[in-house]
Structure formats: C-alpha cells, structure tokens
Design a protein around this nucleic acid. Structure first.
Lengths: 205, 205
DNA sequence: TTGTGATCGAACCGGTCGGTACCATCGCAA
DNA sequence: TTGCGATGGTACCGACCGGTTCGATCACAA
C-alpha cells in the first residue's frame, strides 16, 4: 500500500552515482525487504525503482529482468540464513545438544522480529509463475537439513538422516506457526523441547 | 499454462442449465483445483469460466467477485480437511496413540497424491493481496490444533496445549517438506515417529 | 401463448504490469 | 576541452486482468 521509503539512496543529480555497485546493492536490499513484506507479485518494478531513486533502465542493466532480481534476492536470503544457522551451531562447540539449542535460539530471535513473515524462500515457492523459486527453496531446505543431520550424527543416533528430517520438520513447523499464529520465540522453544528427545540415543547412554 | 479442462459441464445451449446450483458447484470445484495448482493469481476469471463452460456474468452472480469465489473455495477446503482429520481420529477409538496414528496415516495418503501441493490455506495466506486468507488460515490451524490438543489431553500429558502446539508443528513441518522435497507418506511416518514420544506421560506409565 | 428469469457469448472499460526506447544530464578520464 | 559511459526521467508499448453491460437465446411456468 504505502510507499517503500526504507531503503533510499542520497538524492543525486541525473547522470551521477555515489558508487559503481552502490545502486545495485540498494536495489537488492530494497527488493529483499519489500518482496518479503508484500510478495513477489505485490511489488511492481516501477515502484521499486522509484523507492531507491533509480530508473528502470538501471535496474534492467543490473538484473536483466524482474525474475533475475528475484533470483538474486532469494539467493542472498538463502545464503545469509544458512550462514546464520551454521554460525549459531558453531557456538555449541562439540555438544550436539548445545548446537541444536543455539540453532533454535537464533530462530527464536528471528520469530520475535515484528517484520517476521515466515521463510522467504518457501513463500516465494508458492508463487507458481517464477519457476526457479521451487528449486531454490529445495536447495535452501537441503542446506538446513545437512546441518541438522550433522548434529544428529554427532549425537550418535542410529539413523541420522531420519532424525535430520524430523528436526527439519520441527524447524519448518515452528517457522510456519510463528508466522501465522504470531507465537514469537515461544514457537522455537516448543520446537526445541520436542526436538531434544530425538537426539537421545534410545534408553541408556 | 495449458487449459484447465478437468471439471466440465455438459455443453449446453445458451439459456439452459442442467441444475440451478449445478453450475455453482462446478465452478467451485474447478476453482478449487486450479487455484491449488497454480495459485490465486495464476488463474484469471475468464479462463476459469471458459473451463466450466460458463459465462463471467454467471460467476459474478454466484460469488460476487473473485475474492468471494476464493473465500468460498478456501472455506470448503478448510472444512473438508478438518472433517477428514476428525473422522480419522475417531477411528482410533479411545486410544490417543491410535488416534494420532490414524491422523498421520490419512496425512500420508494425502502426501502421496501426485497433485499434492501443500496446504491450500497456508499457500493462499502468502498471497498478500486478498486479506481474508490470513484469518482463514489462522482459523484453519486452530481447528487442527484443537483436535491435537484433545488427543494430548486424552493421553494425560501435563501440558496438553503445549503438546498440541508441538504436534501441530510436526504436522505442518511434514506438510511443507512433503510438498517441496516430494517425500510422500514417508514424511508423515517420520512426523508420527517424532510425535509419539510427546504423548508419553514422562517415564513410568 | 405469453412472459419471466437464467444463461451464454462477446464486446468493452479502466487500470496495472513488465519491458523498451529515447533524451538530457552528469562524472570522469583522455 | 572533448568524448564516453552510466544515469534518471518520461513516455510508450503490448498484454493481461477484474468487472460491467448488452443482446440473443433457451427452459419453464402461468
């Protein structure tokens, strides 16, 4: 509805630019925010360009098409979120339980942000027109699953792949419910509580 | 892309109709299928009408607007899915474990269908323009959560609400992963295996 | 027979969108 | 100073969409 306005370059005269790639980065960041808030179809190219004070021609020189811009946005999102979770897990040292706890802690912080709208990759994958979204979402989930499977393997469970999938289910379920039901970090806490028994090597240790 | 073609009335002459509400039902069913396959924005009114051999005027007399049609489609979906799960749970008799097993069994059948594309309500809620979708999705999730909380309470867990939320997380996570990762009923099996420990009244029985 | 109501088909309207073309403008290097 | 490349602004194009209107057509009841 309202103007975008958050990401904005200094207003500059016609033929100028503060930096060669500065405009590209601003476009990417503005698109990241507004695509996440209002969906891929909810934002037009014209509005997006005017919000960063750029022209459509510049956008098309940088990204080729709206689909190219979307792909760049989603790829950056996926890389950043995966890096977040891996960095969080690293703070758990060698203890799988501590690693998983740290992962769900950073998830909880994410859920608590007022701008939280669920997983951008999965949201984009539901927009049918824009084919790459689905494969990018799959790749995104595979990154999560690889991390969770590593944690499960480190815990010594009999079937790390299966436990990795189950942990990913809890993570995704929490992501969905924190979005629609506005649960905040409580969703991450509940998910962690349900996840911990899965790491226990059945019965005696 | 291609024509819809699945749902189709007998081709009839101009001023005729096989049944007063027959056209309305056909429109609803065709819209249910195609909105689910291609998203709310992926289908135009004109294409939808021609696929059932009706005119736009008829559609607007029955549903008022595209939003009215969408609301009717989503409400029917939600009611049907909730009824499915409740009927499945009823087959478990008084045993909470059997109830939960039956719920995830019917979910697994759903995941195995080739047309499966995740939860229509949640998918619709990601399309930002069409405001009612979000509240309908919340209502839909509440229906699921109520059932799962009842099962948790019947199992005698200390905090049925919390376990109900955790069960719903597993259900939603399985719904998402079965969609994007094409896991089929295996997703439901993994989710059930992760859910059963949550019903155990800690330690001794 | 007459009339009423539902229907189809098609034209039409206003608006939006992605994408392109053109031009005046500016920084900067030769 | 001159020219080149990147830029912003604007107009424009073709396509599509949601929604409205109108006339011709048919079933059916009075």
């Amino acid at each position: 509805m309202g103007p975008i306005g958050t990401i904005c370059l200094m207003p500059v005269a016609k033929g100028t630019s503060l930096d060669p790639d500065r405009t590209r980065a601003a476009m990417l960041e503005a698109a990241t925010v507004v695509f996440y808030e209002r969906g891929l179809d909810g934002v037009g190219i014209a509005e997006l360009c005017s919000s960063v004070g750029a022209s459509k021609e510049t956008l098309y020189r940088h990204f080729g098409s709206k689909d190219g811009l979307i792909a760049a946005v989603l790829q950056a999102r996926s890389d950043r979120n995966n890096a977040w979770l891996r960095r969080a897990a690293a703070t758990g040292g060698d203890d799988p339980v501590a690693q998983l706890t740290a992962v769900f802690a950073v998830l909880g912080e994410w859920f608590d942000q007022p701008q939280y709208r669920g997983c951008a990759l999965l949201n984009a994958a539901t927009q049918r027109h824009f084919e790459p979204a689905h494969s990018m979402a799959v790749q995104h989930l595979d990154g999560y699953q690889a991390l969770l499977t590593e944690i499960a393997a480190a815990a010594g469970v009999p079937d790390p792949d299966r436990v990795g999938r189950q942990l990913l289910m809890l993570l995704q379920g929490a992501t969905v419910m924190a979005d629609h039901l506005a649960l905040g970090r409580a969703a991450a806490d509940d998910a962690l509580a349900a996840a911990l028994p899965l790491l226990a090597t059945s019965g005696t240790d």
